[in-house]
Computed example of a mutant assay.
Amino acid sequence: MPLAKGAGIFATTRSPNTIMQEMLAQLDFRAEGEAYPSTLQRDETLLFLLDAL
């Protein structure tokens, strides 16, 4: 990710959004921790991390 300039990046997505989870995995993001309740939606939220290069 050129714009990250060597820094780590995080992303969140709703648990039923499997397409986004697959996209993040293809970009080498990894799921971290456990799903947690969303304050805005009924679904749980997942955290994904991309390590700094």
Rank of each mutant, 00 (worst) to 15 (best):
M1Y: 05
P2R: 03
P2D: 13
A4C: 06
A4W: 03
K5T: 03
G6F: 01
A7F: 00
A7P: 00
G8I: 00
G8Y: 00
G8S: 12
I9W: 00
I9H: 05
I9Q: 09
F10Y: 03
F10M: 08
T12H: 06
T12P: 09
T13D: 00
R14N: 07
R14T: 08
S15C: 13
S15P: 15
P16F: 11
P16D: 13
P16N: 14
P16Q: 14
N17I: 02
T18A: 14
T18G: 12
I19Y: 09
I19C: 07
M20S: 14
Q21Y: 01
E22Y: 06
E22M: 10
E22L: 12
E22C: 11
M23T: 06
M23E: 04
L24H: 05
L24Q: 06
L24W: 01
L24V: 02
A25V: 06
Q26L: 09
Q26M: 09
Q26H: 10
L27I: 01
L27P: 10
L27K: 12
L27E: 11
D28Y: 04
F29D: 04
F29P: 13
R30L: 01
R30V: 00
R30S: 04
A31M: 06
A31N: 08
A31G: 12
A31L: 09
E32I: 01
E32M: 04
E32H: 07
G33D: 02
E34P: 05
E34D: 04
E34K: 13
E34S: 11
A35C: 08
A35E: 02
A35S: 09
A35K: 12
A35M: 07
Y36P: 01
P37W: 08
P37M: 10
P37K: 13
S38C: 14
S38N: 15
T39S: 15
T39L: 14
T39E: 15
L40T: 14
L40I: 10
Q41K: 11
Q41G: 11
Q41P: 10
Q41F: 08
R42E: 15
R42T: 12
R42V: 08
R42S: 15
D43K: 13
E44S: 14
E44C: 13
E44A: 13
E44L: 14
E44K: 15
E44N: 15
E44Y: 14
T45I: 09
T45P: 04
T45G: 04
T45Y: 03
L46P: 09
L47P: 04
L47S: 05
L47N: 05
F48V: 01
L49N: 06
L49C: 04
L49Q: 06
L50G: 06
L50A: 03
D51Q: 03
D51V: 00
D51F: 00
D51A: 02
A52E: 13
A52K: 05
A52I: 00
L53P: 03
L53C: 02
L53F: 00
L53H: 03
L53D: 08
L53Y: 02
